[in-house]
Write a protein that binds this DNA or RNA. Structure first.
Lengths: 106, 106
DNA sequence: AAAACAAGCAACTTTTTGGTTGCATATTTT
DNA sequence: AAAATATGCAACCAAAAAGTTGCTTGTTTT
């Protein structure tokens, strides 16, 4: 299909998914699907789908406990984004950042 | 419409756009639309569209010179992504985000 | 055992996105 | 001035994504 960094970027490119992810990161404990859905105005299935795509890229881990499924955020995949950006950070301070800085540094 | 960070993330979530952006960042000078298109197998209009969305979020600056339009990469917008991620970097080292806390608590 | 609850699956609709082709316009070049 | 070049614009198409609703399955609770 597509490469990993693309999938991760697509996952966080959606505002609802960023909200869900954020809610999970700041949560003091794992949240069940229903608990998460309760925080959004859209349908349960809509939220569930978003959680699923987050899970697929590893930004959310899910553990089943009885009839409930508890979600936890995992920031690890973001490292790949960070890694991708690292190259461009070299150009942070060049006014319009093109090669100059890069050549100097290498 | 949508907020800025969302637009920037969507822009870089597409692999072709990341390629175009990268080509511009490492270019020694501004590249014309045709020069950029030459590097891709898809149609000129396809590439042009991608360049346009990159321009809309500020990742590419364009200057017209006669009948040509020259493109330069601008990494600045990526700072917003970096900024967004900063919050989550705090959790970089918790093995699985807050899973530890969760397991301990049960 | 029946009712209530948590959640998944599947089908379907709408919108967005990635990509195409054809045509128009302005600028060079010959 | 005619031909060639660089590009934009608009319409169109196909595939993917976002979101909905209805039904099913398993687990608790009463």
């Amino acid at each position: 299909m597509q490469d990993n960094i693309t999938k991760i970027l697509k996952a966080i490119a959606d505002p609802t998914r960023r909200e869900i992810f954020h809610a999970l990161v700041i949560a003091t404990s794992a949240l069940s699907i229903t608990q998460i859905c309760g925080q959004f105005s859209m349908s349960r299935q809509g939220v569930t789908k978003h959680i699923k795509t987050l899970e697929e890229v590893g930004l959310v881990d899910i553990t089943t406990k009885g009839r409930e499924r508890f979600c936890l955020a995992d920031v690890q995949p973001l490292k790949q984004v960070s890694e991708w950006m690292k190259f461009y950070e070299k150009f942070w301070d060049g006014a319009l950042g093109n090669l100059g800085t890069y050549l100097d540094a290498n």
